[in-house]
Amino acid sequence: MKHWLWLAAFVAACALVPLFGNNYALRLATIMCLYAGLALSWNFIGGMAGYPSFATAAFFGLGAYVSAVLQAKGVPFVAAWAAAGFAATIFAALIGMAILHLKGHYFAIASLAVVEVLREVVNTAEGLTGGGMGINIPLQGMSADVQARLFFFVMLTMTVVLLAATIIVSTSKLGFGLRCISQNEDAADILGINTTFYKVAAFSLSAFGVAIIGAIYASWVQYIEPPDVFDILYSVKPLVMVLLGGLGTIFGPVIGAVLYLALEELVWRNFLTVHAAVLGALIVALVLFLPNGVGAMFRQWRKRPAVQS
């Protein structure tokens, strides 16, 4: 119940942005929702199941391209977004069955390869995707102002849906099974948890969220090309956000996304040429000093008096 109240508070806070903020704030809020959505999606497989997936960029690009190609063929945008989500879900289920038996680094490398393969496929399939020329997704009959607001609310809706899904999953048998898998997969197997099914379910759910966000992103920016949407940073950023906020927690990914965006805006601007190095340093610092995220730090801090008494 408490989770749902926090969810409502989050929605209320976000919904105020278009009322009071300027266009810069609106754009920032849209990116924040995009980041939060990616982080929440990654959290299903990376946080709850403990499988460090780097395939996020693959699903993001796949979603963007499926939706873009469908819209170029005249499919209305909402239907194209949904189709992108389902295509990625099926794709993730198939890939998942092939690579989810790998563990740790091996799984990470295999999932990373999925991004590269998809990028190359999209690059070569020029007839369908435009190849390296990219693809235009014009959205007609709307002023720039209306579009900005529309995409903010669409992105916000997607984040809320994923947050609701996270709350539901984490209290369900699926979430319980995933946490068991992340703690000790052998034991989970022995106790009759269908680990293969649960892992594939988490991977597919993750792909579903990421792909729809990718599809919305494509419509929002109206032009995509392979290096843009298959950018490996789409795999790395959600991972850093979730580590920042708290692995496998419910609101951790959202908190992490907000913090990450703040860092990106405030710090990186001043270190434009070395921002990749800052990202690397951030990951190292996180793993060393805050392995359970800032959420855990606050929880510990709040608990401390109780422990002393």
Binding site: R179, C180, N184, A187, I190
Partner: peptide, 12 residues
């Protein structure tokens, strides 16, 4: 089956 090495869920 009680596996070798016990295999408990450590954070449970």
């Amino acid at each position: 089956h009680v596996p070798e090495g016990r295999r408990l869920f450590r954070a449970m």
